[in-house]
């Protein structure tokens, strides 16, 4: 089984620790996991694991977008905390046509609602979990832990 974790713009502090957390959790669930991110977000994650303890598999987001095909991954997990991240999630979701989970968060409750609407309006069958969060990853972790049980 293969899982793809999509990261958004790295300006949200809670994204990097949650990326490592999600990678570890999915790996323990038996998924061969790949994290796709832009160069800055990739570096933040890579430097968080200096001894390569987690064997993080990091790839370039835009290069991957040009290469993927339906069925390449069995699970898609996306960090959605910007308008562009919602667009990327919906695009990967539509290409892959697989099980998917959107972790929607923002410091602004209106943005959380807006990003949820964008995914719902796309016709996606993704499970969407949403919470107000920015610096503190704990609310996202709690939501992820609950939502990922649907895929166990």
């Amino acid at each position: 089984m293969k899982a793809l974790v999509l990261l958004g713009c790295p300006e949200t502090p809670s994204q990097t620790p949650m990326a490592v957390y999600v990678f570890n959790r999915l790996t323990k669930m038996g998924y061969d996991t790949t994290i796709a991110a832009n160069p800055a977000a990739k570096k933040l994650v890579k430097i968080s694991d200096p001894e390569d303890y987690y064997h993080l598999n990091l790839v370039d987001l835009e290069r991957l977008l040009g290469e993927i095909n339906p069925g390449d991954f069995d699970l898609l997990v996306g960090f959605v905390h910007k308008d562009a991240a919602a667009s990327f999630f919906v695009t990967f979701d539509q290409i892959l046509q697989t099980k998917s989970l959107a972790l929607v968060f923002s410091r602004d409750a209106d943005e959380v609602a807006e990003f949820v609407n964008m995914i719902e309006e796309s016709g996606s069958n993704a499970i969407i979990t949403a919470v107000r969060a920015f610096h503190n990853p704990s609310p996202i972790k709690v939501k992820f832990d609950k939502a990922i049980k649907e895929f166990e």
């Binding site: 977008l65 919602a86 667009s87 919906v90 695009t91 990967f92 539509q94 290409i95 964008m118 796309s122």
Partner: peptide
């Protein structure tokens, strides 16, 4: 078009 369709050599990103 659908998200992921290729236009001018790139896959277009967005909400359908």
């Amino acid at each position: 078009i659908k998200p992921g369709d290729e236009v001018l050599g790139v896959r277009v990103i967005g909400i359908p």
